[in-house]
Write a protein that binds this DNA or RNA. Structure first.
Lengths: 358, 358
DNA sequence: GTATTTGCTGGTAGCGCTGTCAACGTTCCT
DNA sequence: AGGAACGTTGACAGCGCTACCAGCAAATAC
């Protein structure tokens, strides 16, 4: 067949239009807004496109329309389980849409974040998802000047750039400490790693809760800038014990650390929860399967990613949410590791709502 | 200043060229192949670009040059820890290059993979990274027809589409079983979940090793199509015990399952390794911190991702590797959970190389 | 000295698509 | 019946960049 083809042999919109007997612009509309076509032409273009196996050239579309169908995502880490859940939510939500995800890793550096933001914005993304609320002033200015919707995820703050979805790490930490307090713990240690802004706010919540009951002491807190790991949890806990042998509870800034603490207890033959209660943060899957099962603060990470991407797509298409700031809340999931009345007769602690959930 | 600007207010190449006093094409070359310019013009363009804050329009570049600077990555899961390590390697390697990563999730479906492949290829990626060797015939044909380098990762197979980097899951499983055998285990169970092609090949390796010593029995194998989890490991192990109470070793298709098995043993007061030895697969970080520490098969996931991306970039730029198939090998990391001579005096088993590593 | 090569530079012509606006036919209203 | 309003369609003109090829000067070869 003598149809004109692009050099690379690809089918262009013009070919589809020709086969369908319409103008290229009409064919173009079919792919972007089918309702604008009459039923007859719509069917003709559809079958022509299918027959030729037409796939739009996104670069040409982006150039002509001056915008891309890309959602930029800036996260601080690819290693962290927490972000893999969030990402999964984002990818899942994006699949139903026409938008594709462009991911970049800031490595917990706000300068790196600024650099990436500049790069992203230059390509005119359809929307942006950024982590947290601790951007540089320059980043913030760029985001405010950007002409695309932006969602900040993972936590809440006083002045959203645009939309925001997360929960209060501060309140969540306070709830965890309150839970330990209710179980009778008084000398409650804090174990934290990496100390990124969100972990820092968990620490702040811990400190405030401890001060409320006049239990706070600086030496109950053990932190490091080192990235988190199970092994590190054990090591930090060992430090804590060395400093303060009398502790009766530990609040860990995440579940990996909590697991490390649990094993360190086992290694030292410290009974959990009889001698020391343990509470983690995030409620990863394994927390329900350990022996004893581990109490944790459930955060809705998958849902956070999914909702962020969904809100963003809605906003891109002009349907801004009535409420641009969404608090996903948290739950303290009480399990054996922190219950005062642990009993063999009650091996599976049901997942209780210990605090507000929006 | 009266400089002509693009409608959106962005600086174009033409502006940079004008300020530098060169033609646009010369400025263009500066960004793609600076060595082709004389030193004087190079400096002029460079400073002009910096002064104006020029950022290239990638859509225009892609349209004009008929290729993109995108590396497509197809992986089957975002949840799995294994892939997050691989991805981290890929992203790390891509950062030094001009290429950006476009990620898609096949969800362990080769039809979905085929669909995504078609989509990717239509955008003329600079290169492609795909997982495994079990593509549909159609996918395979598309990849062979593609005019970009392709790396298959995660495992090795007889007929690479282009490049390939991984290791033999079959051999790795055989090595794990051989290790258990060497420790005196005879009734060795297999616990597997999801049963994707690679887990299936681990099972094949297990079966073959067991048959070598005439120890194989169908009922020693417990598998499920359900996605893996720690909890599931415990449940599958419970099934295995119910079927075959006399087992003295378990080879788990991954570390999550192994952790679940360990906790299930603890729950049932089965001594590890005295009564049952446990071996996992992948050697995730926590395996070295459990009590007892867990033996596993180390696979070089981060390196795999990193090397795959590096090889790909090299190939894109015309420097094809001398050897297109790379075996990254594996190591059986022997720890307490499987050692016959476990002893309190030897709490930390050093990480021994039990098998070949390339 | 002339011919050839090499290195650098610029002009022209698109890449494939969509924004804009005008034009058409149909329906509905008065 | 005349006109407005609407829905549908197409012509045109780029989007910002690079491939291609030509041109020119300097360097090298004979």
């Amino acid at each position: 067949m003598g149809r004109k083809r692009t050099k690379s042999g690809k089918i262009r919109l013009a070919e589809v239009a020709e086969l369908a007997g319409v103008s290229p612009i009409t064919a173009s509309r079919f792919f972007r807004n089918p309702e604008a076509l009459s039923v007859a032409k719509r069917a003709r273009v559809e079958s022509a496109a299918k027959e030729l196996g037409y796939v739009p050239n996104l670069a040409a579309r982006a150039l002509a329309s001056q915008r891309t169908e890309v959602i930029g995502v800036l996260i601080p880490s690819l290693t962290n389980n927490v972000f893999s859940d969030v990402l999964r939510g984002i990818y899942d939500a994006s699949e139903g849409s026409r938008y594709s995800i462009q991911l970049s890793n800031t490595r917990y550096s706000i300068l790196q974040e600024e650099r990436l933001l500049r790069l992203f914005l230059a390509q005119k993304p359809a929307g942006l998802i950024v982590t947290g609320i601790d951007q540089t002033a320059e980043s913030r200015a760029m985001m405010e000047a950007a002409d695309c919707p932006i969602v900040q995820i993972m936590e809440l703050g006083p002045s959203p750039v645009d939309m925001m979805i997360g929960f209060s790490h501060y309140d969540a930490a306070r709830a965890a400490v309150a839970h330990l307090f209710a179980q009778g713990c008084r000398r409650i240690g804090f174990v934290g790693a990496r100390m990124d802004p969100r972990v820092q706010r968990r620490l702040d919540g811990y400190v405030s809760a401890m001060k409320d009951t006049a239990l706070y002491e600086q030496r109950l807190v053990v932190t490091t800038a080192t990235p988190t790991s199970v092994t590190l949890g054990g090591a930090l806990f060992a430090d804590l014990l060395a400093r303060e042998p009398g502790i009766d509870g530990v609040f860990c800034a995440n579940d990996d650390l909590a697991l490390g603490v649990l094993f360190e207890c086992r290694r030292r033959e410290i009974e959990v929860p009889e001698q020391i209660a343990i509470v983690g943060f995030n409620d990863l899957e394994f927390m329900a399967s350990t022996v004893p099962t581990l109490t944790s603060v459930r955060t809705n990470r998958y849902e956070m990613g999914r909702t962020a991407a969904t809100m963003l797509v809605e906003a891109i298409e002009g349907r801004r949410p009535e409420e641009p700031v969404l608090d996903l809340g948290f739950k303290v999931i009480e399990r054996q590791s922190s219950l005062a009345q642990r009993a063999e007769s009650q091996p599976m602690v049901s997942e209780l709502v210990a605090d507000r959930t929006k």
